[in-house]
Amino acid sequence: MKILVVDDEPDVKDLFEQRFRREVRNGEFELAFANSGEEAITYLSSRPSEVVLILSDINMPGMSGFELLRHIRADFNAPPPPVVMMITAYGDPESQQQAATLGANDFLTKPLDFTVLKEKLRTIA
């Protein structure tokens, strides 16, 4: 299962790679990273319908996570549509509501509980 992680923090890459090292080594998950919404769109356009799951931060400079989500649902929604989970440090109900309206499958708050995340991913896979 290919997972695209979108976050403006470069260290997120290292963190995910280590958190999912066993799964990556087993070939269970394949991780890809983008530092911004724009980068994520470029990645998605070059690999249409390869990515099964997208984990995206909401608060990023430039294109926000919500805008990215809107783009995904508009341009990269070829069936099977990718599962999109929004991640944010501000877990307020308005943001959660907005994410749901825009078509997010899930809404996670930072700090991420990787145990819970892994379980969620496994149910999808």
């Binding site: 963190l15 280590q18 958190r19 440090a89």
Partner: peptide, 17 residues
Amino acid sequence: AHEIQNPLNFVNNFAEV
């Protein structure tokens, strides 16, 4: 708060990993 929470999350996560 946000700026402190962010690095702290990394500290915790990297420590656990």
